[in-house]
Nucleic acid binder design. Sequence first.
DNA 1: CCCATTTGTGGAAGCGCTCCCAAGCACTTG
DNA 2: CAAGTGCTTGGGAGCGCTTCCACAAATGGG
Lengths: 347, 347
Amino acid sequence: MARVTPQRTPLGSGTPTLDEVARVAGVSRATASRAINGGQRVSARAQSAVDLAVRELGYVPNPAARSLVTRRTDSIAVVVPEPDDRVFSDPFFAGTLRGVNRVLAERDIQLVLLLARPGASTARTLRYLTNRHVDGALVTSHHRDDRLAEHLADIGLPCVFGGRPWTGGDRVAYVDTDNTGGEREATELLIARGCARIGTIAGPTDMTAAEDRLAGWRQAMAAAGLSADAVEHGDFTERSGEAAARALMERHPDLDGLVVASDLMAVGALRVLAEMGRRIPDDIAVVGYDDLGVAERTAPPLTTVRQPVDEMAERATRLLLERVDGVDGSHPVRLIIPPTLVRRVSA
Amino acid sequence: MARVTPQRTPLGSGTPTLDEVARVAGVSRATASRAINGGQRVSARAQSAVDLAVRELGYVPNPAARSLVTRRTDSIAVVVPEPDDRVFSDPFFAGTLRGVNRVLAERDIQLVLLLARPGASTARTLRYLTNRHVDGALVTSHHRDDRLAEHLADIGLPCVFGGRPWTGGDRVAYVDTDNTGGEREATELLIARGCARIGTIAGPTDMTAAEDRLAGWRQAMAAAGLSADAVEHGDFTERSGEAAARALMERHPDLDGLVVASDLMAVGALRVLAEMGRRIPDDIAVVGYDDLGVAERTAPPLTTVRQPVDEMAERATRLLLERVDGVDGSHPVRLIIPPTLVRRVSA
DNA sequence: CCCATTTGTGGAAGCGCTCCCAAGCACTTG
DNA sequence: CAAGTGCTTGGGAGCGCTTCCACAAATGGG
């Protein structure tokens, strides 16, 4: 890590320091510091003198100096081990970021976005976290191979996972939704409406949420005594949903029900089904997963399983902040938020 | 800003410091520091001793301490004065983040995402930047009212804007694309193919990109002697495109050409036109703007103006890093990247 | 009215790091 | 052989801040 141009500015000239505030306010640096940080054990007189000086000088504390001694950075990382377009275009990500941001805004904590390309830069990400550049980490969209959970547990950085990690789930806290139950319920809906040949478009095999949903589909199918052989995998994108639907319908033209592990993939599937002239839901009923905006705008509107992403993100963030504050040692809490089936037209 | 639980860990126990590295390597702290930071003026012997000690101890430098003296944080902020879903679901944002990240990855600089709700938290954002928590700022998607450009120029933080700011454009650097020229060209295409009644769905009136595109449309219309009265505004979302198209077609049912200021809005417009039974491009030709993935998947594929978002973001980031490195004082550079017309089916 | 408490204050000691500077050293060179 | 040259090296100062600690001043109870 070659550093560049030190450019050691004198600074005595520009930015005011705590010393100057103290001098202007006519108190010691210690008192000024106390007054600025919550004002415990500070007389009203001193407090207002400091306040005035701060305003007058336009003083802002130097975060590096502060965090050097407090050992806090007042920022947390959101780790996304997947910087492809996929992440950004997925409303799941948007919702997560929104939820996180809402909580952080309350407390004046900043968000550092760590986009780690799988493989190469995982090391970099890990180094950054090990450095304690941030007070904690929120990991989202992790895959089987990045052993992030274990690594983070090893370095002892407060962290919370969005979604159950593959391994190390017993060592880190995570917030998840009942993917299995949700998809089971979705499948049961199709069964209840009389579908007999139900296929599924599952998500990537290296993500727990996808595998859990697939398991839910399997459970419902087994319970109804239906054969669970019509499975195709996508990667949660619309395009992959198209491809999967095409493959599925080719192998199983008799399908009258389709359980899709994400709304985006369902959009692709709907398009393919429309092309093939299948009427929905009469010829084939379709149910998606997510309900993050797209489901209500498809043709026809998509019956789907809603996961409360905002809430999950919010809960995860609060959990993380608690651990950062040291409220709870490092007990690996897990929080499961229930999904809800949302009925529209497609099933 | 009340701080929480100081939890002053002794640290002498846990994380190794430079002192310990120096002791283990049998050199002074100064030499150890030099060895770690690029190894200028360090003998091979000392260098390898330090390297060994670092590895052995698992030493990672404390970023706060380092940045306290170097006055650098090795991180930059991406400021998004608009944390709505809009930002996230817009491929423009995704492309920007991708471009930025690509450049930062080369240099081990981190990305702090500053989502500022318009109004309230702008102050917070500004404070964060004033604090010099980051070495520089990249501002994207700014609106007329956040006087971010002036503020940033005032506090003297290195910054680059993505898109020309409303005011203060003479005080800050920015990277933009020729929105006016791009939309003019798009309009000329419609005129060339024989359209005589051309309407436009413009973007929000408080964004320069949107206004520039509208100006381009006007220029082309004026040059062709056509009346430029069929204008409707959206906010770059699909939904607003729908509404605008509906309104436009109601007021001007005779339209045979439509210039839309974003592909997302064009998607909405296409849907409305299809509902109305208009054939595209025969009854009405449509041209979009962006070409960031959606245009090639519409029905029919959308003729559009491509803005090279990735490149713009990359250039902007490089420009920012130059200013952070102090290569260029604060000369308000501006960089204009040309758009290109991409012909598909819709026009 | 004195002593025990509470409350407010400032001095000073660092937090871990970088970097200036002067000194040390092994060589050249005149 | 003395003086100059270039490269390494470590001492030490200091970045701006928080917080421990000791002390002074105010308060209150017996």
